[in-house]
Nucleic acid binder design. Sequence first.
DNA 1: TAAATTTGCCCATTATAATAGGCTAATTAT
DNA 2: ATAATTAGCCTATTATAATGGGCAAATTTA
Lengths: 88, 88
Amino acid sequence: MEFNDLTVYKVKSHIAELSKTLRVVEGISQDQLAEQLNMSRNTIKNVEGAKNATLDTFLKVLQHFDLLEKFDDFIRDSIADKNVSSLY
Amino acid sequence: MEFNDLTVYKVKSHIAELSKTLRVVEGISQDQLAEQLNMSRNTIKNVEGAKNATLDTFLKVLQHFDLLEKFDDFIRDSIADKNVSSLY
DNA sequence: TAAATTTGCCCATTATAATAGGCTAATTAT
DNA sequence: ATAATTAGCCTATTATAATGGGCAAATTTA
């Protein structure tokens, strides 16, 4: 028996973890990341606290950590896959 | 020479395309999708118009199209990869 | 082709994300 | 150990995402 208990909240928690982890690995503070992305520290804190940020904020964070291309691939691949599977 | 002209806006456009394409393949209207996700049609229209939605909205759309797990994998893998690469 | 459905674009209102500031606890560096 | 930096948590304000409504153009169905 297989069930899906992956919630929107859990995914936001993982996004939070991503920002915090990669930021610490890079050795910069919330303040520094916020400054580089032209946003307030509170916004970064919200992301890293699994709050409900905007797509702009999320995508800028991804871009900073060189993950925007890979994310875009995920999106475009998902479109392509569905178009193929819908042929059958 | 290699350069990166992938912008946040372009990615949002691809997200817009994803929602619209998969929704049409599924054969439901913006209204029906909105209703199933407990949100207004305007919110879906914003997503499909590449406007700046919230993470909640985006993640619910992914969830509807069975893409939440794969997206979560992308996030968790990105954390794992960085942790490994930071060891060297 | 007529009717029905869907979509896009307005408007106004409400809910909430983003900002700015200060304060304290915790962590890191000297 | 203490000084400096960082992070979490407030409050208040501003910007904007989400909602609900109506209407016209476009698309789909009968």
